[in-house]
Amino acid sequence: MIAAANASFGQQVAFWVSAGVMAASAVRVVTARNVVHAALYLVVTLAMVAATYAELTAEFVAWVQVLIYIGAVIVLLLFGVMLTRAPIGREALDNEQRMVALLAGAALLGTLVAVLVDGFGNNKVDLTSASVSRTAQLGAPLFSRWVIPFEVVSIVLLAALVGAVALARKDAPARRAASPDRR
């Protein structure tokens, strides 16, 4: 009983720490005045999302988050920052509709909070060690029940890969003719 209470307390502490860091760094992602700083705050946010998956007993999703998001997506975004000009300063990075955007975000948050509190109240989610979903437990449904969507996702990834290469190719002759002012 005491051990269970302690585990629950540890879970609470882990949740609030990761939630606080995630919220603060997410706000910094959308307010930072330097694109590289925003990308680095996004790393912190994504790491805290991975921690949240671990708190929700989803170990494989947590590691996929670390590998794909922090490993691949952030590197892609940093390459994007590197290859485009990354200006510094609020006026270069934000547009004039900041207040409208803030209002829209706040209104959406208020609506979502009201709906969630009304709809799910005090429902508990079971996060004891018995409910931990191991990687093998995830792999079995992934390759039996969800195998067709899994293959479709791999085709999507292949199409995206080909599309990205086709778009970003530098020496496409048609585009060279179309944009004579290219440097």
Binding site: V30, D94, N95, L112
Partner: peptide
Amino acid sequence: CVGVYGVLAR
């Protein structure tokens, strides 16, 4: 909602 703000304001 932070993401929505970012999409609209950036």
